[in-house]
Amino acid sequence: MTRTLVTGANRGLGYETARQLIAAGHTVYVGARDPDRGRQAAEPIGARFVEIDVTSDASVTAAAIAVEAFGGLDVLINNAGIAGRTPEGGFATAAEETADSLRTSFETNVFGVVRVIRAFLPLLEKSSTPVIVNVSSGLSLTRDLVRGDSPTYLYPGIGYPASKAALNVITVQYAKAFPGIRINAVGPGFTATDLNGHTGT
């Protein structure tokens, strides 16, 4: 039986991924920061809740201990992510973006992923079928964001594309370092979730 952790899984793509993997027979840990929301999301779909704040060393370490106690891990889905939009749902443009606003996106989308991978690597290395999926974005591809005919060309923000570009390189570097683990980045498409204020199509 395949045991899978999905971070940021109490809603949106993480929740739906958990639901579909349970339907396919996985044992799924729903990772969420908020215990109430996490449990409410996990119970109806038959998942287990694991408290995890990817921006906190202590929380991620505790989550790894909890998952190990449950029996280990085969698949890690680094789904928790933030778009770094303004409170009104708009974009911080290049002129408006500050170092601090940028760092907020990277704490979850980049440093959070590195933290979670590092904490769960010992568990994944014990699995016979270890897999890591990093949820990236079509907005991560610099080669498309320079191309006038790409739909992503017009995206005005800085933090989200830059954080996902970094995540792609991180994915490739880990994949080369751990050839026994399947490690990939994925682009789910522009999806109607809270991340984009339900503007996804």
């Binding site: 443009t93 590195v114 610099t142 964001l145 005005p156 594309p161 570009a165 970094a166 991180i170």
Partner: peptide, 20 residues
């Protein structure tokens, strides 16, 4: 990991500023 990822992010930032 850190250095290549940081320069990849910097490349994207370069492109987004250049367009704006």
């Amino acid at each position: 990991v850190a250095y290549p990822a940081s320069k990849s992010a910097l490349n994207m930032i370069t492109v987004q500023f250049a367009k704006q």
